[in-house]
């Protein structure tokens, strides 16, 4: 028998089949270890579900359910309703987990419905910017210029041609009490946001940036480093917002001096084709600059 971790603290067990260096594994640990054992999770189809629940094994220490790709929000709505009906709602966190595909694309309608109905459910999106489970296909979360297996770079293609869908801002527009973005590179910030969301009544949305060594093309030890670079360059801005007035947005990690985006892009194979195209780098840089200005840094 294997050595045992301290299961009283660790809600996400070892032995799961995630790739070495999986950013999602780090994110799930940070979220669940903050939420604690009185938590029920409904999850969409994706890497996380496949790598953690191959029968008869499960990496989950908390009650967990997967039904289909597009409906963690609806399944969680049913769970919350049942807990209320059974008089067991108090003290239990109901979380919905989705990858970017199950959140930005196929699960978007169910997410919107859940937010609009005002369920006391905390939705956590683990965003690795493509359909990784099916082999790195383009998603509306994929950033401009990224080469994926369905948006390959080529003589007539720059890779993904559209900018990343602003999912967290769209969730804010649902007038929910709390929305935040977070990164695995900043665990204290992430856990604080999880705590805030859990302490607020009503639906909350947490958008977590999770680099993927397999899909992005980098060595497994650099997962956290790349997440850090995304924040330091302004590619992924960490913020939180109570309510829907963007004037009140609070940027929680402001680099003193922003690094140029090239520092981030050059670390990953998915952007490799951009490196000899200074006009494209310039374009990405100016879009990041504009965005950071909007966020006030």
């Amino acid at each position: 028998m294997a050595e045992q971790c301290d299961v009283t603290k660790e809600m996400f067990a070892s032995g799961h089949r995630g790739c070495a260096g999986c950013g999602e594994g780090i994110a799930v640990r940070q979220v669940l270890n903050e939420a604690g054992p009185n938590t029920i999770v409904a999850e969409v189809t994706g890497c996380l579900e496949v790598m953690t629940t191959g029968y008869p094994e499960s990496a989950w220490e908390i009650p967990w359910i997967h039904a289909a790709f597009e409906n963690a929000s609806s399944v969680a709505s049913g769970i919350e309703a049942a807990l209320i009906a059974k008089g067991k709602r108090k003290g239990v966190n109901v979380l919905a987990f989705g990858g970017d595909g199950g959140t930005f694309d196929i699960g978007f309608q169910a997410l919107s419905g859940m937010l609009e109905r005002g369920h006391n459910i905390k939705y956590v999106c683990f965003d690795n910017e493509a359909y990784m489970n099916t082999g790195i296909q383009r998603c509306s979360s994929t950033p401009y210029g990224a080469s994926t297996t369905t948006s390959p770079s080529g003589t007539c293609s720059i890779g993904e041609s559209r900018p990343k869908k602003p999912i967290a801002a769209i969730c804010v527009a649902h007038d929910i009490p709390y929305t935040a973005t977070a990164s695995i590179a900043h665990p204290k910030d992430l856990r604080k946001k999880v705590r805030t969301a859990l302490d607020v009544e009503g639906p909350c949305f947490l958008h977590v940036f999770v680099p993927c060594p397999t899909g992005w093309g980098y060595a497994s030890e650099r997962t956290v480093e790349i997440a850090k670079l995304a924040v330091q360059t302004g590619v992924f801005v960490l913020w939180e917002l109570e309510g829907n007035d963007f004037a009140n947005i609070k940027v929680t990690k402001k680099p003193k001096e922003r690094k140029p985006v090239i520092e981030y892009l050059k670390t990953q194979r998915r952007f490799k084709h951009l490196l000899d195209k200074p006009e494209e780098i310039e374009k990405i840089q100016s879009e990041v600059d504009e965005k950071c200005e909007r966020y006030g840094f």
Partner: peptide, 14 residues
């Protein structure tokens, strides 16, 4: 979503 919520609720014992 109606059937999905039924599934979540039923799995929670309702």
């Amino acid at each position: 979503s109606a059937m999905s919520a039924c599934i979540g609720a039923s799995a929670t014992g309702a």
